[in-house]
Amino acid sequence: MKIGLIRHFKVKRGYPNSIVSSKELMNWVEEYEASDVEENEVELSGIKWETCYSSSMRRAEVTARRVFKGDVILLDDLREIPLTPLFPSRVKLPLFIHLFAIRMAWWFNHPSQAESKKVVLEKIKRIVDRVISENQDILIVGHGGVMMFMRRELIRRGFSGPSFKRPENGKVYIFEKKKDDSRNHPSRAYIIKF
């Protein structure tokens, strides 16, 4: 059984200015959500992927439909973790401070965040449960943050696969769980001495 994780194609809308207010940051998020993507060739490693799940966000859906020749199953549970600014809307700060504060608030389940870490991890566990129960080679198209947590869950469940800090856009990361071969080996006889 193989699971291929793909981060959506690169979004054409780049990052906002380096100094932004919370309001400008959220305007940029809206532009980013509506932006077209830059398609690239995706190496599927010669695997005949049987099913494809995708985030229901446009950029992921476009990627999934480009790389998978079949029906794509769209899931809201694969959507990107939402950004919720912590600072008043008019205060201008460097972009990295906004993003760092949001990540820390999310990580520590600050009530300002639209979706808690616990909720996101529960969604990922449900998706992995569903995928494993199908016992086939499956592609999952999503977003960088979700992929990092999905990778951890797959490793925790006995899959092996590549490590990444920030997954590349439009690249497949393959995770595999080997079948348990212990049943195919003859039992060993043990001598117990008293």
Rank of each mutant, 00 (worst) to 15 (best):
I124F: 12
A105V: 08
N135I: 03
S163Y: 04
Q136A: 05
R130G: 12
M150T: 13
R130Y: 10
H110N: 12
R59T: 09
I192M: 15
D129A: 05
S56L: 03
R126A: 14
R103Y: 05
S89H: 07
W49N: 11
V72F: 02
V42D: 14
P167T: 07
R166A: 12
D36L: 07
F149N: 10
T84K: 11
R65F: 13
K178V: 05
K2M: 06
F175D: 01
R58C: 04
T51W: 02
V141P: 14
E168K: 15
M104Y: 05
V42N: 09
P16T: 08
R152W: 10
E24F: 04
V29D: 02
V120H: 00
N184D: 13
E39C: 07
V11L: 14
F108C: 06
K179S: 06
I140Q: 03
V37I: 11
K10G: 11
I6H: 00
L86M: 12
A114T: 10
F87M: 04
I155D: 01
E31T: 03
G170R: 03
D77V: 12
K125L: 14
F108H: 11
W106M: 12
S187P: 08
E115A: 10
M26A: 05
T63K: 04
M26Y: 01
Y190C: 10
K23Q: 07
N109R: 14
L95W: 00
L83T: 01
K69D: 15
E115F: 04
S35R: 00
V11Y: 15
P88A: 03
W49P: 08
R166P: 05
K10M: 15
M147F: 06
V72Y: 02
I138H: 00
M148S: 06
F159L: 15
R157G: 14
S160G: 08
G4K: 06
R152L: 15
R66T: 08
M57L: 10
R126W: 10
I127L: 05
R103P: 02
S160D: 09
H8N: 15
K171P: 13
S55T: 13
F175L: 04
F164M: 02
S163W: 01
E50T: 03
V72A: 01
L139Q: 07
P162Y: 04
